[in-house]
Design a protein around this nucleic acid. Sequence first.
DNA 1: TTAAATATTACCTAAAAGGTTATGTTTAAA
DNA 2: TTTAAACATAACCTTTTAGGTAATATTTAA
Lengths: 141, 141
Amino acid sequence: MRRNSFISREQDYALRMIAYLAGLPKNEYISVKELSKRLFISPKFAARIIHKLKKENITGSIQGKYGGVFLKASAKKLSMYDVLNTIGFKVKFNDCLKENFVCELMFGCKFHSFWVNEEKLLIDKLKNQKISEYILKEQYP
Amino acid sequence: MRRNSFISREQDYALRMIAYLAGLPKNEYISVKELSKRLFISPKFAARIIHKLKKENITGSIQGKYGGVFLKASAKKLSMYDVLNTIGFKVKFNDCLKENFVCELMFGCKFHSFWVNEEKLLIDKLKNQKISEYILKEQYP
DNA sequence: TTAAATATTACCTAAAAGGTTATGTTTAAA
DNA sequence: TTTAAACATAACCTTTTAGGTAATATTTAA
């Protein structure tokens, strides 16, 4: 599949699921199967993503029959950046921003600082966007 | 190779070459071979990129022995966006911003407008950055 | 004891990135 | 007029990644 988005499907799905979990009533939880169905994500893929989020203590889970998952972190403190980061958000605006990258054009490439600034601006914004502002609730008739 | 940059290597090389050509004295030109050597780009790959830029009238060329390429567009009017666009800059912040993409979460996904805004901000900035501000000149001792 | 849930890892496949190969065509100069 | 050195153009190749599936184990309510 094409990948020319800034964020991947996996990262998008993670945001969706977190936004949905944030909308559950307190102390409620939902099975990954049901969650994935409501958000149009393949169940197995959803499970893998939820697992990554759990390892970072963003979600919690109840095992066994009638188990499920819930948001463990505070929706008011959890940022979009936190979620994306857990799902491997290591996108750089240009390769020259990566660690250990040695640019051959030390003699005067001025694009570098442009990318540095833009990247920082966006990351700061992602850190400021809290999940509580993005809660996703299905409307039942 | 990994591809988790916002811009591709090919797009980066295009910017480098344009920035270098913009620094040539008026009416001078340079062979792609020499250009690629100075900018650490594989010669064949450079040729293909220059060809794309020529098709959009950004560069011009002189064929035959002792031929070469030069910047045809005005460095003061040519933007980073123009160059990137020529080299297939169709990156979207999220898949949901693509044409013909149908989002299943019509019922209330609030991330969409965040991505729309951020993407527009960045594209406007790229359109405002003119190549004349990024001229690349090798320093000889 | 069993059904239905999570936990975890290994594997699969299409597509794109990043480049090379190949084969022209053009033109200055010997 | 021949030839070397440049640009022109398309087809092809290889590695990596995105995006997902399969498989198997473990947990726990009923």
